[in-house]
Write a protein that binds this DNA or RNA. Structure first.
Lengths: 130, 130
DNA sequence: TCTAAACCTTCCCATCATGGTAAGGTCAAA
DNA sequence: TTTGACCTTACCATGATGGGAAGGTTTAGA
């Protein structure tokens, strides 16, 4: 299978497949005589795994760990769960940061008349009047 | 005032102050004979404005607009409010993306025994068994 | 058989906001 | 005079992704 077909099936762009190879997230693909990369079903499977992990917000380094655990028949589910819960904690922290921003700003916007006059609590707050 | 003092007072690093100047977010600072940048109270005020806007998650380009509105005595609060509410919408979208990730993953983790055995719904889901 | 299209290759550059480091200039206090 | 704390510019790095150029390969059709 050529890289373009793998990209279509796995949902990861050719750009990123080559990038993942360059940074050692996946092993270097076999090559044909033409120097084209050649992939098998296992490679597609692995790339789909990576796509799903990315969709859950895991970083490349976390995915490195997940791939190791996936390949390790001796893994304990506790190890996987630990990694997942750490990521959940990270997501929660990021959500809370964004929520605080949103709440503050929504509050300010709520207090802004939004008419033709220049007076505006949003600008005033940003300028440090308060 | 030298850049280091401004950084301390405004809460923006010297690195970023120079960067903001380089990308035209703030005007080029006056220079002394030594070629050191020289700042006044207005500059500090503006940088503090930028810091607060960044703390609310506004991008540099959005801050460009906010600075324009701040400086414009003829602005309407409606313009400011519009910008703020667009940003609130953006924050909400980002929050929802993270929330979906978190909910999915928290759910999977909840279904994972977390013991010494290898069976794990998290890994299974990522590998596309389901 | 020739050609054009659709692949593929590597290499370099860009994003966004931020920081690090290096090599060197300035200034004030001891 | 020396030392230390500033400052300057210039270059490189991050993380994940994409764009584009210049050139090689393969395949289908005229």
């Amino acid at each position: 299978m050529q890289i373009g077909a793998v990209a279509k099936v796995s949902g990861i762009s050719t750009k990123m497949i080559r990038h993942y190879e360059a940074i050692g997230l996946i092993r270097a693909a076999d090559r044909r005589d033409s120097n084209y990369r050649d992939y098998g079903d296992d490679d597609v499977h692995q790339l789909s795994f990576i796509r799903r992990a990315r969709a859950l917000g895991f970083s490349i380094d976390e995915i490195r760990d997940l791939l190791r655990l996936w390949a390790d028949g001796q893994r304990s589910s506790a190890d996987v769960k630990k990694l997942a819960l750490e990521h959940v904690g990270d997501l929660n922290r990021r959500i809370n940061v964004l929520r605080e921003m949103r709440d503050t700003l929504a509050n300010l916007a709520h207090c802004c008349d939004g008419d033709h006059r220049p007076n505006c609590p949003i600008i005033e707050t940003l300028s440090g009047v308060i």
